[in-house]
Structure formats: structure tokens, C-alpha cells
């Protein structure tokens, strides 16, 4: 049967029943739910009842009359004049989050023991980081600000920590900085064997591959944070295109957290891709 034509309905056997019932609208009720019932006829003549349920939500923004009046006030003082207020108000390009704080003591108790730390601190419940001064969060040797502390001692530009993509504040070149280069192994806080630079990178470092292109540090932070405190997240970006290259490195403060993250997230579906999570390879002494 071809498309319906005018007058067809009357010719059909159903007679008057062939006419589509009118659209019905019920509601919105007190919950704002509105039900719309429509009838359609398909090309083959069968009738279809379409029920659409809609929730109607009214968003009211109340503005005080005084506020509305003040919106159109004349500018005064230094704000008068052309372009005088230009560039004064900028919306940050950087997304700022309310960074959640992890309660103290959640993991402080099961920290890996290190003789020197224990000796100097005495009481295990009184963990105070000598580098950043934070209490109960981590041991001095595990401080995420470790490299920074080394910089503070000498005011020499250390390596720029990855992921420091914001605002271009260089972390180095303090006032009266010494002119000569001091290798990392000679800086304060280093153990002298060039280990400190590598250590922060290699310790409990895991590699995440097969990430989608629009995964950002923040996403990984959310994904991996539940396993334990993270000291570094590095997402590789293509220098030319600015797109993610699909892999990232994440350093956990604790090795156990890293193990758990690997066990849980290797093969995890994330953003329609299957993640691969493994230990970062370049570590010769891995057992």
C-alpha cells in the first residue's frame, strides 16, 4: 500500500476507527511529570501509539529589583573611559578543583619501615615530614616535594617537574641564585650517588597505556586516587599536535597501592578502550 492519501481513511474497512485519535497531554503533575500520547500511522497502515514522558523543570533565578537596577549602573572612578576595564577581568583558562583532602592516618600506619626515619621520629604515630612539614601524611623520604626541597637549598633550577603546565611560574632561579650549575647529585638532600633524581621517577612507577586521546591528568587522578596517594602523574602529549599519545606514568607513594592499582585496572574498560596497566619497565633491580 502506498502512502496515505486524503480520503483513504473513509474507504477503509475500519471506517471511522481509521482516524487517528487526537494527541493527549496529561500533566504536568505535582512532580512535574508530563505524559504526551500521540498516535501515528505507519506506511503499512498499522497504528503506533507513542507515549512520551517528560519531566518539566522550572529554573527560577530570583533577582532582587535592586540588583537588576544596579546591573545598569554607570561606571565611575577608574572604570570610566574606553577600554579602561579591558583585560582586568579574565576567566581562568585553568580548571581549578576543590582538591579533596585525605584524612590523616588513613594509611600512615602501614607505611614501609625505614630504620633511619624510625630512629629520628621515635613514635610511629607522629609522622612529620621534614621537607614539607606535613603531619601524619608521609615519611620525609617519601615526600612528593622532595626535589623541590633540594631546590630550596641551593636556589638552582632543578629539573622542571612534569605536569607543571600551569601559568609558567618557573620553580627555579631564586634571588641571588648562584651562577654555576650544580648537578643533582651534589644538591642538598641528595644521597650523592645520583639516585635522588631517578628515584622519584622509578619508585612504584606504573605505566598506563591504551588511553583515549582526551584523557587528562585530572581523569587519571580520579581513576587512580582511590588506590592510594600518588606522587606524580605524567601524561605524554604529542609536541606537535598537543594530543595525548595514549600513555601515562603514575607514581604511587606506596608500592602496595601500585600493586593493587595494577591488579584492579589492568584490562579495565575506560572511555571505550581497554586499559593496560603495568610496571614501568626501566628498572633494572626489580625483583
Amino acid at each position: 500500500m502506498g502512502p496515505m492519501r486524503w480520503g483513504d481513511a473513509a474507504d477503509e474497512d475500519e471506517g471511522i476507527e481509521g482516524v487517528l485519535p487526537p494527541m493527549q497531554v496529561m500533566g504536568p503533575d505535582e512532580k512535574g511529570v508530563k505524559i504526551i500520547i500521540e498516535w501515528r500511522k505507519k506506511e503499512d497502515g498499522s497504528k503506533v501509539k507513542v507515549t512520551t514522558t517528560v519531566r518539566v523543570k522550572k529554573q527560577v533565578k530570583r533577582l532582587n529589583p535592586a540588583v537588576i537596577r544596579r546591573r545598569s549602573l554607570k561606571k565611575f572612578g577608574d572604570a570610566v573611559g574606553q577600554n579602561s576595564s579591558e583585560n582586568l577581568t579574565v576567566v581562568s583558562t585553568e580548571e581549578i578543583f576543590l582538591e579533596r583532602f585525605r584524612p590523616v592516618g588513613q594509611q600512615g600506619a602501614k607505611q614501609e619501615e625505614k630504620g633511619a626515619d624510625l630512629a629520628s621520629l621515635g613514635n610511629a604515630s607522629l609522622i612529620v615530614c621534614r621537607t614539607c612539614g606535613k603531619k601524619g601524611d608521609h615519611w620525609t623520604s617519601k615526600c612528593p616535594f622532595k626535589e623541590l626541597a633540594a631546590n630550596r637549598g641551593f636556589n638552582i633550577g632543578g629539573e622542571k617537574p612534569p605536569g607543571d603546565d600551569d601559568m609558567g611560574m618557573s620553580s627555579s632561579s631564586g634571588p641571588g641564585g648562584k651562577a654555576s650549575y650544580v648537578p643533582p647529585s651534589m644538591r642538598m638532600g641528595s644521597k650523592g650517588d645520583g639516585e635522588s633524581m631517578r628515584k622519584g621517577r622509578d619508585d612504584n612507577s606504573i605505566r598506563v597505556t591504551n588511553l583515549s586521546e582526551d584523557t587528562r591528568e585530572q581523569d587519571l587522578q580520579e581513576l587512580f586516587r582511590p588506590f592510594g596517594s600518588i606522587s606524580r602523574i605524567y601524561v605524554a602529549f604529542d609536541r606537535d599536535t598537543g594530543l595525548s599519545r595514549g600513555f601515562a606514568f603514575i607514581n604511587f607513594v606506596n608500592r602496595e597501592d601500585a600493586v593493587r592499582a595494577i591488579n584492579k585496572l589492568d584490562g579495565y574498560g575506560y572511555d571505550n578502550l581497554i586499559l593496560r596497566v603495568e610496571w614501568a619497565t626501566p628498572r633494572t633491580d626489580r625483583a
Partner: peptide
Amino acid sequence: TMSDRRAGKFEAKFFHKIYEEEIGGV
């Protein structure tokens, strides 16, 4: 000016008014 800005802790810290617990920082 003597230290990195991250060491200065220039955050606005949110606390729960009743529980005195830290909620987070901006």
C-alpha cells in the same frame, strides 16, 4: 620569593564547620 609556590601552600582550605575536618583546598 624564597621558595616554590607549591611549597607556600597558598590554598584556600575548606573545613567542615562542625566536624573540624579538612574537606579540601582551592
